[in-house]
Amino acid sequence: MKSARLYAAEHNIEVDQIPLFSLDALSVEYDNGCCAIAIDPNRIESYADENTKIAHELGHCLYGGFYSRLTPLYTREKHEYKANVWAVKFLVPWDELHEAIHNGITEPRELAEYFSVTEAFINLALEYYLERKDYSLD
């Protein structure tokens, strides 16, 4: 199990619990490329939920994908996609997912529990690997 919070700490990326008005979590860049993450503790449903949200924000921090409300929608969608891809590759690496499935862990709920992510996130990972990347489970 990979911990996004631990990864953030090891890479000097502060994660603060702060009530947010309309978001579950956000990341900001400051001082020469440093990054910080805020996550609303009232919107965390489980460890898997927190792990998934922090990993997504780490994706923004580590590839530099920040935008503002004034950024065109197409550009924002590209940044969100890249953050999701980073989070998928970090939390659910293809080789580990492939091995888990071949070891009989096949239901999305079971896979999500195995990787400590949400079921929606495991579905995103499966879509990314099987449909976008065209990887095979054979």
Results as ranks from 00 to 15, higher is better:
46 S>N: 06
121 F>M: 10
92 V>M: 00
78 K>R: 15
124 L>C: 13
60 H>Q: 12
72 P>E: 07
60 H>A: 11
91 L>R: 09
71 T>C: 06
119 E>S: 13
47 Y>K: 10
97 L>P: 01
111 L>F: 00
95 D>L: 14
71 T>R: 08
50 E>T: 01
98 H>Q: 13
98 H>L: 14
118 T>M: 10
72 P>Q: 04
108 P>A: 03
105 I>C: 05
68 S>M: 06
85 V>S: 00
109 R>W: 02
59 G>W: 10
51 N>T: 05
59 G>T: 12
116 S>Q: 14
77 E>Q: 14
56 H>E: 09
86 W>P: 09
103 N>E: 14
106 T>D: 09
116 S>W: 08
43 R>V: 06
79 H>W: 13
45 E>L: 08
90 F>P: 09
77 E>N: 15
78 K>C: 11
86 W>V: 06
73 L>F: 11
87 A>K: 03
119 E>C: 08
46 S>A: 01
42 N>A: 02
73 L>H: 13
121 F>C: 09
109 R>K: 02
56 H>Y: 05
51 N>M: 03
119 E>D: 09
41 P>W: 00
92 V>H: 02
112 A>F: 07
69 R>P: 06
59 G>H: 05
103 N>T: 07
100 A>E: 07
101 I>P: 08
108 P>T: 03
89 K>Q: 15
45 E>K: 07
73 L>T: 12
123 N>Y: 05
103 N>C: 08
60 H>F: 13
100 A>D: 11
69 R>D: 12
114 Y>W: 11
108 P>C: 02
88 V>H: 13
48 A>H: 04
106 T>Q: 15
111 L>Y: 02
114 Y>D: 05
58 L>A: 02
